[in-house]
Design a protein around this nucleic acid. Structure first.
Lengths: 159, 159
DNA sequence: TTATTATTGATTTTCAGTATCAAATTTTTT
DNA sequence: AAAAAATTTGATACTGAAAATCAATAATAA
């Protein structure tokens, strides 16, 4: 109970600051925090995990019938530029977006059977990536890593 | 000199075996090693680095005017399935393919300024990836890793 | 030969994402 | 407040990569 409450409270705090961050970003770029952008942000942020622009468009319409999908696409780009959303590409032809909580970055572990995806991070790998780039004279600014395989459930079924 | 010769000879040997591998793959799947497929393979294999289907189509046409691009797309898929080509995705909307020499897999280090890409491998990272997947109950079958940054030349210019 | 199966190139279709544009809204200037 | 300037919006048209379709061929098997 205690923990749950804490998490919820924590999420709200992050929520506040992310909305604030979006607002700040728009202000800095002399752009407007319109009602559509607010709605799209709220819906996007309430989803956990990743969403495709189409999915988000559908969800957003439930709140406000009049929002067009061009605006959803545009807003996702803004959120991405503002560092609030992150593009993820499972190479199935659709670019998805996921909320980017603070600086907590992660990579993806994907089951090729059922499509399940797990978020993972390994600081040791991160470290080695930096090192590797450095060896080639590169200054690393980011990376994407996708691990493909078969999850335990699906492995079980096959056997 | 000695080294160069050796490399060239080495490449020829690989070439032979890759063509052979393609042939074997087709045979196994009861597919035919047609003249078009042979031409597309040869052109693809002669390119070093990655090519987009469109680029390969253009190059292939220089050898044989009549080849259609649908066939190029199809053949690249076959090469990929046969383990002879590998898809690479620089997330610019075009899927590129590169020859897959033996089992020597590698990842990409990409300069976001000039677009240059360097092939890299780090066995220590590979090891950790396996380990990480294992911890989550996954059996790893492959991965893709792209490191984005700024190369030394471009860093120099900016300063 | 005849029947079956695979392949091809041209063409059409699909679908995600972008560009366009007039209308609406907001902000700034006068 | 009024007028002018700038942004945003939604509808729609467009783009370009990749896949599907299909009739015509070619190769293989019976």
């Amino acid at each position: 109970m205690k923990i749950k409450k804490f998490i919820i409270k924590g999420k709200e705090i992050i929520m506040q600051s992310a909305r604030e961050q979006f607002f700040q970003y728009l202000a800095r770029k002399k752009l407007r925090f319109t009602s559509q952008r607010a709605i799209i942000f709220d819906v996007f942020w309430s989803v956990d995990g990743h969403v495709s622009p189409e999915e988000l468009y559908r969800l957003t319409k439930e709140k406000d019938r009049s929002i067009g999908q061009a605006t959803v696409y545009r807003t996702l780009k803004l959120l991405s530029d503002a560092g609030i959303a992150r593009e993820v590409d499972f190479s199935d032809g659709v670019t998805r977006y996921e909320p980017y909580y603070g600086q907590k970055h992660h990579d993806h572990l994907i089951c090729q059977e059922c499509g399940k995806s797990v978020e993972v991070v390994d600081p040791r790998i991160e470290k080695l990536q930096e090192e590797l780039a450095w060896q080639h004279g590169f200054t690393l600014s980011g990376h994407s890593m996708y691990l493909y395989g078969c999850c335990s459930q699906c492995s079980g079924k096959q056997a």
